[in-house]
Structure formats: C-alpha cells, structure tokens
Amino acid sequence: MTETTVVPWAEGLGDGAGHASLVASSDMVTDAVRWPMTGPAPVIEVRDLSVHYGAKQAIDRISLDFGRNRITAIIGPSGCGKTTLLRALNRMNELIPGARTTGQVLYEAQDIYARDVDPVAVRRRIGMVFQKPNPFPKSIYDNVAYGARINGHEGKLDELVERSLRRAALWDETKDKLRDSGLALSGGQQQRLCIARAIAIDPQVILMDEPCSALDPIATLKIEELMRELAVDYTIVIVTHNMQQASRVSDMTAFLLAGEERIGRLVEYGPTVDIFTNPRDTRTEDYVSGRFG
C-alpha cells in the first residue's frame, strides 16, 4: 500500500536487540515522524481479520501491518469497529461472551490465534490502556507492581515502580504518596498510572483505546508527549476520535468505515501525512476534513 522508504538507520529496527542504541538521539525519533514507513519487519501483521459478536459481524477481513516502534492511529466514525480491531490484537475480545474471531494476527510472525498460543502470554507482550482510566482500587505502588507481581518479577519492585512511573511522567507528582489509593488521583494522572502499569511489565506493543477521551486538553497533551517518548521503545497503536491528535502523534493512520450493513472495513491505510493531506479515497477525505456524519 505504501512505498517503503528505507532510511539508513531503519535497518536496525528489524531486530529487537538494537533498541538501546536507537534511543541515543532523540532527533532520530522526530525523523521517524517525518519519514513514516512500514519498515522491514512489522511487529504485528493482521491478515483477513473478521470479528463477530454472536450473529452480528463487527469487522470484515481487515489486513494491515503495524510497524515496529511506530505509532499507528486507527480512526473512523463511532461503531466502525476500531475498538473491536484493537481488542483483537491481544485477544481481549474473547473475554466477551459470544465474540468470535477469524483470520490471522501475526505477532513477530507467530499467529496469536493458533491453537497452542496462550492468550495470557500474548497479553504480557501486547499491553492495553483503556478509554476510561481503570486503576485498581489499590495503592499507586501496588497498581504499578501488579503485573510484575503476578508475572513473578525477579529484581527490585521499588526500582521497577519508580522507573515505570518516571517513564509515564507521573513520578514527580506521586513519589511522596505511593501508598495512597490510585483512585485519589485526577483523571489524567489515573490514565498515566494505567500507562505506567502497562509499561511496568515491559510489553512490546501498547494498545490504547481513546486514552485521552476522558481528559482535558492539558492532560491530553501530556499523554501525547508521553506516547512520542514511549515510541522509542514500544510499538503503539492508538484509537482516537480526535483528528488533530491522530495527525499530531501518529506515523501511520488506518481509516475504518462501516457501510450500510454496519460492518467495519478498512478503507485506507498509509502514512499519516498522506491520509490527512493527500488521501486516495474520497471517503477518507470527507472524514478527515470533517464532512462526515
């Protein structure tokens, strides 16, 4: 779909081992924004993915790749299946009674829907942040330590908690009240706590479902900034209703649309710049310019 522009340093992106060296200079990251591309080896490849809820089909044969260390935005009108697609990427859909998935989702070339794959293991590698902040009714510390504890984290918990909170830009605000309930935080802080909680188990991919929809503009900007920083280490997929947000933070954008029969399909997928400035499909153009129901 997209021309693959291989910039010199992008070769290293293929093997996960090269992460640390890539972090060295932050202007490289900005380069990535200017030079969006699918890269040589996508982290997740979606092939002909369909999801049904009972008899109702929600999305139909969607295929697309999620590039390593890229931020991919999924946009589209309400009900077009954005959440459904996102939740199919780490097998969260199967927690909904009656949900059925067909097609393939290849994570590092392995089909996560294969018979011998443990969904719990999948979710440890592909984490998720939800639309509404949902911290556990536990202390800030215990929220962040939760994933590490159940995964039998070796190493020091204190360090992990501090590192994760710092990474989520929440450390300064919470370092003196780690024992307070996570629910005592503001909405924006709660969402950053959920992000800290997600990165504490060191996943490779973070899925975010409208992570800023419950937040004010300042908190939103904070999270967006955070996403840019996290993209150095993680692959991020974000669902958003906010066109400006999609254009601000994402490298790639996928536009989904449900037709008359209310089944979501992928209309267009490409570099965010192209989707917003030079879309190929008129429906995309209508949607991103706000001329859509």
Binding site: R124, F136, Y146, I150
Partner: peptide, 27 residues
C-alpha cells in the same frame, strides 16, 4: 465489581484466577 477492573487485569497478562483473587475479591 466493574468489568473494567477485570479487563485491566487481563490486559496485564493476569489469568482468570489471579484476576479473581487479586483484583475482584479485594475490590
């Protein structure tokens, strides 16, 4: 106990048993 708490736990790679015991029961 709200479903969203269970979802949050599953998304962190918790099993159903861990979710029940460490999130739902305390809540």
């Amino acid at each position: 106990v709200p479903q969203s708490l269970r979802a949050g736990s599953y998304a962190l790679g918790a099993t159903r048993f861990e979710t029940s015991l460490r999130v739902v029961v305390p809540a």
